[in-house]
Amino acid sequence: MRELGLTIDKIIAGDVRTASRVISFAENEDARAAHILKALFAHTGRAKVIGITGAPGSGKSTLTDKLAKEMRRRDKKVGIVAVDPTSPFTGGAILGDRIRMSSLATDPGVFIRSMGTRGQLGGLAKNTMSAVRILDAFGCDYIFIETVGVGQSEVDIIKLADLVLIVNVPGLGDDIQAIKAGLMEIGDIMVVNKADKEGADRLVIELETMLDFRGEQEGLRPPVLRTIAQDGEGVPTLCDQIDIHFEHNQKIGLLEKRRRRNLRLEVENLLLDRFTRRMRQVITAADEMDNLTESLYNRETDPYTVAETLGESMKLP
């Protein structure tokens, strides 16, 4: 118990090694993580959490690097959680987001952590929230979560972030892409990166048109901002907009509403996780699973009945 108190104190005091080790515990679902995160929770909720999402190669890492630099210029402490995909076959991963952030590495006011998705769908790693909490307690004013390069429906970032930036680039598709459901609906701020490339003007118009039809929504109309992340162009304006959104959302109660919703979703997800683990136990313990599969294949029974029977053994309604 004394050791737990010490760990908490060290994280709050900004000890990098302790914070990074505890993130590992969380990633590995080590039993120590749960104790620490429970005790840490009371010390969190101060950081502004910003999700950065968009297609692979749209410039998320470069933009995150430049955003962090701008926030450092404004004397803010910055945390970055950068997620890259884990191989579904080997469990291995190449986490390459740091490549674009190497000049931030030695800044003591920046903490960068790379995470593999480890089987989680939705664009994030399973324990991204834990990493964010630890960086929050660690004293970061802003925490940027960079998702994996996403397609159209990886929208889990809204369950974690206070504010979501969608990074768009010219040349990826026509205006039908902009009116599809999913990713494009979740942005608080639309970034048109690589704005010096052909098609940027058109993309801006398409996004604005999409937003015209977005209907009644809480909060500010998402601005469409041009950036050239590589050169840092447009980044100070983007940082200003982030702050404007936070201020506004706080004033109208939207920030609080989102945070309440997200905490509730988090509990649901934790429960779901427990349930999934229990289900795996039941399925692996069921000696008859092989026989059942055989009967299913031979059409002697059906998936619905099998699920019902197994569900009953787990006391599900």
Binding site: G92, L95, R98, I99, S102, S114
Partner: peptide, 18 residues
């Protein structure tokens, strides 16, 4: 990676401090 490890690659021209 193919052996199941998570590999963080820093990119070129890093200082020992980085």
């Amino acid at each position: 990676r193919d052996a199941g490890m998570e590999v963080i690659y820093t990119g070129l021209r890093q200082t020992p401090e980085q």
